[in-house]
């Protein structure tokens, strides 16, 4: 559970930035948003498929860029 103590002499802005960094690092908001609705297995598979396709395309693009530089 992320949280900070504002030390005496520390201004609120810097303390808030520290707090926000902690919250962002823990991916709390992302996780809650992900859990808002149920994701059926069919949708999960669909997402996976798209992610795999993207990964392959990216690899291909990198390879082509590398070859063109040779």
């Amino acid at each position: 559970m992320p949280g900070i103590v504002v030390h005496p002499g520390e201004d609120f802005e810097s303390a808030y930035r520290k707090f926000k960094r902690q919250v962002d690092r823990n991916l709390i908001v992302v996780e809650v948003r992900k859990r808002r609705f149920y994701e059926p297995p069919s949708e999960r598979r669909k997402k996976e498929k798209i992610a795999t396709r993207k990964k392959i395309l990216r690899k291909l693009w990198m390879l082509r860029r590398y070859e063109s530089r040779l």
């Binding site: 559970m1 900070i4 707090f19 919250v23 859990r35 609705f37 149920y38």
Partner: peptide, 21 residues
């Protein structure tokens, strides 16, 4: 302000969420 804390409840894979709108 003395302290700040995030107390968002996160399930450890709890109940099934409602269906997508």
């Amino acid at each position: 302000v003395l302290w700040m804390k995030d107390v968002t409840p996160l399930p450890h894979n709890g109940c099934r969420p409602r269906k997508r709108r």
